[in-house]
Amino acid sequence: MPSLKQLSSEKDLFTYGHRACAGCAASIILRQVALVAGKNTIFVGATGCMEVVSTIFPYTAWKVPFLHNAFENSAATGSGIETTYRSLKKRGKITKKINVIAFGGDGGTYDIGFQSLSGAMERRHDMLYLCYNNEAYMNTGIQRSSATPFGAHTTTSPAGTVIPGKQQFPKDLTEAIAAHDIPYVAQAAPHNWADFTKKVEKALTIEGPTFINVLSPCPLGWVYPPHLSIKMSKLAAETCFWPLYEVENGIHKINFKPREKKPLIEWTKLQGRFRHLLSESNKHIVEEAQKEVDRKWNRLLKMAEAKI
């Protein structure tokens, strides 16, 4: 596993000059992924924030090959690239394996790209799919996605006087992809760079399809000051809203267990998208959300204990 010193001395392959917002966690995520993956890598990015901010013609923030080939299909596009390079390697035309990393936001992954991702995972392509999950369609102006938390305000799940924000719990995509029985699935967050980069390295070493779901705090959409992104990431793990864990060959392993599990409100109260939940009349929503976090966390604990 690369040390911080090693990583910081590597040359950036996702570089400065992109147009991401101040405090954008997704740009930190991609920078770390590119550092670990190295030069022998091809990236496929779905339409979304990170594609838009990194490739404004005639500029590019990528020092490795990058392809944007529509919104709902970065996994399918990666399939074509991986297949071609695998074939070239089989024929002895290249000697070194080339990493193929397809990525998308929660829109391109949880929702519109779900079918394409499921297909690519089932076909056992030797590639990593990475989701930077900022929990709404941020690129188009903060609309709800199936990854948006219960109770959150977005422009299409507004906190109204009658309906107080999103009425559904988020889809558990990590478990849905784990159900494809692929060799490696993980959940990560950018505050814990050591855990995250280790997971990326592991995923790229393993032969076959791998998937990492990374929480990506978004100052604009979550409504908090830009310097708090890493704190948002940390609190999501400490409240167990976003557990850091991995599923290797079907076995669940928790990578971070907080000594003291913080209440969910410690995380939500710092974000403008949950502001309406602070009122007395919406207390039941906070309770329901906490109950769901507890249920999911306990389930994960049981699976990890049982080594399943």
Binding site: V44, L67, A76, T77, S79, G80, Y85, Q115, S116, G119
Partner: peptide, 19 residues
């Protein structure tokens, strides 16, 4: 590549052709 839809068929073709 036995893809799961025609949309993915052409997406995968684009990826392969780009290589």
């Amino acid at each position: 590549i036995k893809v799961e839809s025609e949309h993915s068929a052409m997406a995968a073709c684009c990826g392969a052709s780009a290589v």
